[in-house]
Amino acid sequence: MPKINPFIVFILKRLGIMVLSFFVASTIMFLLPRIIPGNPLAVKVYQILQQSASNPEMIKSVEKMLMDYFKLDRPLYEQYFDFLINLLHGDLGKSITYFPRTVNEIVAMYLPWTLALLVPAIIASWIVGNYVGVIAAMNRGKAVDKVLLPLLAALQGTPAYVFGMYLVLLAVATKWFPASGAYSPTAIPSLSWSFIVDYLHHYILPFLSIFLTSLGGWGLSMRNIAIQELSMDYMDYARVIGISPRKTQSYLFRLSALPQIVGLAIVLGWSVAGSIITEIIFAYPGIGTALWSAIQAQDYMLIQGYFVILIGTILLANFISEIIFAVVDPRVRYAYAGE
């Protein structure tokens, strides 16, 4: 029997866990509305039926769509099978509140706004946080570290949305920055110069609240990793052969950044789910705010769609980060290649 490359075994195992997790998550999503007493889905369908007096045509089609999608009158196993098939085809159904638009269309409408806010904020905090972490580690126990450490811990302990609330209060008190939305109510999204300036003006506060609170986490983990690296023999060697502290710092930065790259992939996957509340606080028109209004309107189709997409993104980011780790770090790669 030929020996299979352990690296491939590793990837297959991680892939298995990812598929299993997605399966568990979607099973929970399938079962919940159906097993909870008073079946919330059936209640929603019933409500729509009752409202049909006011707008018979539209309501009839929504009801038909819901019946077609959920097939509540069919046996449970058949419903489950259909549910999985729809998911695998990327068919998340149609929204109840925005009928007849599909869930996919609505997600595509809000997602770019969320990404425009999150990706720059997280990458910027990753770079600055790593830098600050290395500085704290190089000066461990000295004054710089003693100031940085509690500051980073406090930033990490404050949820981004609480920070956001304070920033909004500050903005309202000082009138320096607009306190909500992604652009002025009168502005129309376009690529014009005036719109971009308006957008950036609204962008600063939500950006700051995500940037600063995630800075704490990056700084602390970088500091821990760098302290461990500093205690390694090769760092002593670098010192002994007279490499300048500046150069050592840059080596240290590159050595310690490896696990942080993995962290970055995970956090980017997480971020959309993690910033739901921050978006709500700033009334920023992204996925988070959209999820909030879907929950308020009890639009189960949209709620389910957002969850599938958020969980899917996170699982994928986790999987990618593990592969990156194995590919980027030769030590990990050799460990799996089994020498």
């Binding site: 997790s21 998550a25 929970i28 919940l32 909870i36 997480w270 969850f307 996170i314 699982l315």
Partner: peptide, 24 residues
């Protein structure tokens, strides 16, 4: 270990939201 791994990978905040969204 596999069950706990699944619970770690699926963010608990999202799981909670799914659970709570359907509760009356």
């Amino acid at each position: 270990m596999v069950i706990s791994e699944v619970f770690i990978i699926i963010p608990s905040l999202l799981l909670m939201m799914v659970l709570a969204a359907y509760l009356s």
